[in-house]
Simulated assay, not measured.
Amino acid sequence: MNADELLKRHLELVLEANKTTNITAIDSWDDGMKLHVEDSLVGLPELEAAPAGPFADIGSGAGYPGIPLAVMTGREALLVDSVKKKARLLESFVQELGLENVAISDERIEDASRQFRGRFSAVTARALSKLSVLMELAQPLLAPGGHLICYKARMEEEELVHALSLQKRLGYRVKSDRTIDADDRIRRIIVLEKVGEPALKLPRHVGYAQKRPL
């Protein structure tokens, strides 16, 4: 299958699986193409601009944006989702699509970062958590110079200001910030580059990033 066929087949598999397992709130083909497939590819230029090497997609869910990005770039990818049922479905999707460049981890992000510390040239995250939390969770996974690529919708200024205040402490700098307004949808792609090591030991205990945010 070519890239376009793979993207469509992936969506078919997601919609079929969703009939018996709740992996996405989207249940129509048109919405799936727009809100999953096309939305995942919004960040393609940012991943192509990242240093060469594998990337990790954290909180991958139904495989968005990880699978479309892996299909389009050919990069090795690790899809991380700690919900075992979702991870098993991801494995079945990858096998059905024949994606030899994609692997699955069903560990919590903090545990995966201990196993794969410093392994990735990029980390992607879509509709997962606040920007400051993503910065903390991704830091140990990234290689020096690696890019954290965050897909954000409408983001309060307070969230952005707080995240930017943590740049030095977490060893980042903003690389790019792009907003796309299409079909009455706002999508913002924020990229942070890992420029140093954090001022605290990461990862913290599982769940601390969300329960005890910096």
Rank of each mutant, 00 (worst) to 15 (best):
V102R: 02
L11T: 03
A56Y: 10
A182M: 12
E5T: 12
Y151C: 03
E12R: 08
R117W: 01
L128E: 09
K85V: 08
A87G: 12
K175T: 09
L6A: 14
A50E: 02
L15K: 13
E38I: 08
A182N: 14
D57E: 03
V94R: 03
L148K: 01
H162I: 09
M72Y: 01
D106C: 06
K34S: 13
L35I: 12
V102Y: 04
Q139K: 11
S121E: 09
L6I: 05
Y172I: 08
D106H: 14
G74I: 14
L128M: 12
A209Q: 06
M1D: 13
R169W: 02
S105A: 09
V123W: 05
E96A: 15
K8M: 03
A17W: 14
A125Q: 07
E12L: 07
S176A: 13
T73V: 05
N22A: 09
I67Q: 01
R169G: 13
K168A: 12
F93Y: 13
S40T: 08
I149W: 03
L90T: 10
E48A: 13
K201N: 14
L99P: 04
D184N: 15
E46L: 10
A199N: 13
K168S: 15
V102A: 08
L35M: 12
P144H: 08
D81E: 08
Q95L: 12
E76K: 13
S105E: 03
G53D: 09
S129M: 04
R126K: 08
L202A: 03
V102M: 07
E12P: 15
L89H: 06
D57Y: 09
R88P: 00
L134E: 04
D57P: 00
E159C: 06
L7F: 00
K175Y: 12
D183K: 12
E193C: 01
L78P: 10
